[in-house]
C-alpha cells in the first residue's frame, strides 16, 4: 500500500519527486545507488546514455536559479532527453488558473516531465496533482518547503566520503528558518538514520518546534561543532539582512561564520558542505571554502548524477502509465 503519497505509483515506485517526506530508506538508497551508476557517464567519450531518448523535459522556473536549472538541464541532456527552459516570472502571474493554463499548454506540446522551481511552498505538489497521468514532476525547490534533489546530492556527497550514515553526527548551520534545503536535508538524514542531527544558528533563524523533527538545537558554534563529521553550511540570504532578524553581516560572521578556528572544533576529517552560491566572509571564510575539507564543488558535479537518477527513476514506467495504468 502506498497510501495517499502522490509521489508513488500504485506499485510504490517513484512517479514524482516532490519531497523527501514519506519516502523510505530503501528508496533513498536506490536513488543514491543509481546516481553512482550515472556518475560514470560523465567520464566517457560520449557523455550520454539513450535512456530518455524521445522524451521532453520542461524546466519551469518561476524563480531564478543558475546551478539547479543548469544541472537539471545537463542531467536531462546526458539522458538524451530534449529540454525546454522556461523562465516564468512569478510576479505577474497569479497562482491557480494561470498556472494551470501554463501546464495545459505544455501538455499540449507533449512534454513528459516538469522540473518546477517556485517561490511558493507546495507549488510542485499542486502541479503534480493536476498534470496528465503520464507526466512526472520534480521539485527543484518550492518556497521554504523542500528542495529534495539538493538534499539527495548532499547525501550522495556524504556517502562518497563517509561509509555508514548511522555513525555520523551532522551539523546544519545558519538560516534554518527560511531554508528549504535544511528541511529536506533533515528529512533525508533522519530517514537514512544518522546518529545525530544538530542545527546551529541564532534564535531568530531557527524555526520553533524544530526539535520535533528529531534534531538538537545549538546557538553556539563552539558547542555545536564538537565531534561533528559533516558540516552543512546554509546560504544567508543577504536580502533578509534588512529585516530585524539579524544585527549585521559582520556580527553574524563573528558568531556563525565558519572559520578555520571553528572548523578545528569538529572532527579532523570532517567535511564542509554548502549548497551554493556561497557568501564568502558572511557564512563561510574563504580559507575554509577553498580548503581540502571543503567538498562544495563536488556537490555541484554530484548534482548532475543525482538528478539523472531521479529523472530516470520517475520516468521508468511512463509507457505503462500512459496506457491504461495496468502495468506489469
Amino acid at each position: 500500500m502506498t497510501g495517499n503519497n502522490i509521489q508513488l505509483d500504485e506499485h510504490g515506485r517513484l512517479k514524482h519527486f516532490l519531497t523527501i517526506e514519506g519516502l523510505d530508506r530503501s528508496l533513498l538508497l536506490n536513488i543514491l545507488d543509481n546516481a553512482e551508476s550515472f556518475s560514470g557517464v560523465g567520464d566517457r567519450a560520449i557523455k550520454k546514455v539513450p535512456i530518455l531518448r524521445g522524451k521532453t523535459v520542461a524546466n519551469l522556473f518561476f524563480e531564478p536559479s543558475t546551478r539547479t536549472r543548469t544541472t537539471f538541464e545537463l542531467a536531462a541532456k546526458r539522458l538524451s532527453a530534449d529540454i525546454l527552459n522556461l523562465n516564468i516570472s512569478s510576479s505577474a502571474t497569479k497562482k491557480g488558473e494561470s498556472l494551470l493554463d501554463t501546464l495545459r499548454t505544455l501538455e499540449a506540446m507533449h512534454c513528459d516531465m516538469f522540473v518546477v522551481r517556485h517561490a511558493n511552498s507546495g507549488a510542485a505538489h499542486f502541479i503534480a496533482k493536476h498534470v496528465a497521468p503520464h507526466i512526472s514532476v520534480i521539485n527543484g525547490g518550492d518556497g521554504r518547503h523542500a528542495h529534495p534533489t539538493q538534499a539527495m546530492l548532499d547525501m550522495f556527497t556524504i556517502r562518497r566520503h563517509k561509509q555508514d550514515f548511522r555513525e555520523l553526527r551532522v551539523a546544519i548551520i545558519g538560516d534554518i528558518l527560511h531554508s528549504r534545503v535544511a528541511r529536506s536535508e533533515i528529512h533525508a538524514l533522519s530517514t537514512l538514520g544518522v546518529s545525530e542531527i544538530r542545527v546551529i544558528g541564532p534564535r531568530t533563524l531557527i524555526p520553533r518546534h524544530v526539535e520535533t523533527l528529531g534534531v538538537h538545537v545549538y546557538h553556539n558554534m563552539s558547542e555545536g561543532l564538537k565531534e561533528v563529521d559533516v558540516i552543512m553550511m546554509l546560504r544567508l540570504q543577504q536580502e533578509r539582512m534588512r529585516s530585524a532578524l539579524l544585527p549585521s553581516a559582520s556580527e553574524y560572521f563573528q558568531l556563525y561564520g565558519l572559520t578555520e578556528e571553528k572548523l578545528a572544533l569538529a572532527k579532523t576529517d570532517a567535511i564542509v558542505m554548502h549548497p551554493g552560491p556561497i557568501n564568502r566572509g558572511i557564512e563561510i571564510d574563504s580559507k575554509v571554502a577553498d580548503s581540502s575539507q571543503s567538498v562544495i564543488l563536488q556537490q555541484v558535479s554530484h548534482g548532475i548524477a543525482v538528478r539523472m537518477a531521479v529523472m530516470a527513476l520517475t520516468m521508468g514506467h511512463s509507457d505503462a502509465r500512459a496506457g491504461d495504468g495496468d502495468a506489469d
Partner: peptide, 14 residues
C-alpha cells in the same frame, strides 16, 4: 526502459 524502468541496484559499467 519506459515499460520496465531501472533495476533496483544497477551496477555501473566498468
Amino acid at each position: 526502459f519506459s515499460q520496465i524502468g531501472l533495476h533496483p541496484r544497477v551496477k555501473p559499467s566498468n
